[in-house]
Design a protein around this nucleic acid. Structure first.
Length: 188
DNA sequence: TTTAGGATCGACT
DNA sequence: GTCGATCCTAAAC
């Protein structure tokens, strides 16, 4: 998808990402992983007390203020990676946390990344998603619009015929402030 | 330099 | 449903 898709209001992007396909390439000699995004959350700036960007720029969150379409990856609770896609115009902080997905292709590879886990639990959480796709801090700042169809990570619109998707909106998970904002989106 | 707490997960009861 | 693991970040001292 083009950069203009991400250069919009963060909440709108979070809704529109549900149903999109995420392609993970880069396993030499092996097939690509393709997953379908089923759960997202929107995080904004000064108006969002739950956001890392709430108090302005820091070394960690600087990507959230940068160009839309790049990844913002961070370590959560000292042990899990979470992946976000940066939104809004440059200088305006925003990012969408990818919280859940289902495997479309490359099931064996995902299973190998998540040993001992039942298929239904492979990617149903932000830390599980990054582990299943073998993503870590090395991908912080990666441009998902920069691959011209061949990058390690790429997003595609929902396959035609699958829209409109039923969407549920709820408060966000695991935060102590800002729960009132219905900025979590789940398919179903 | 120190310290509190976090956009979580999985094991266990 | 409860709880411990585990370590980085940011802000206070």
């Amino acid at each position: 998808m083009e950069r203009a898709f991400y250069e919009r209001h963060t909440v709108t992007v979070a809704q529109d990402l549900i149903g999109c396909l995420l392609i993970r390439r880069g396993f030499s000699g092996l097939e690509d992983i393709v997953v379908r995004i089923t759960e997202t959350e929107a995080y904004r700036g000064a108006d969002d007390p739950a956001s890392h960007a709430h108090r302005g720029v820091t070394p960690r969150n600087r990507l959230m203020f940068g160009q839309a379409g790049h990844l913002y990856v961070y370590l959560s609770y000292g042990m899990h990676y979470c992946m976000n896609i940066v939104t809004e115009g440059e200088g305006e902080p925003g990012a969408v946390l990818l919280r859940g997905a289902e495997v479309v292709q490359g099931l064996e590879l995902v299973r190998a990344n998540r040993p001992g886990v039942r298929d239904a639990q492979l990617l149903n959480g932000p830390g599980k998603l990054t582990k299943g796709l073998a993503l870590d801090l090395a991908y912080n700042g990666y441009d998902v619009c920069g691959g011209f169809g061949g990058g390690e990570l790429e997003l595609l619109p929902p396959p035609t015929g699958m829209r409109p998707l039923p969407l549920k909106e709820t408060g966000r998970i695991g935060i102590s402030k800002g729960q009132a904002m219905p900025w979590r989106f789940v398919e179903g």
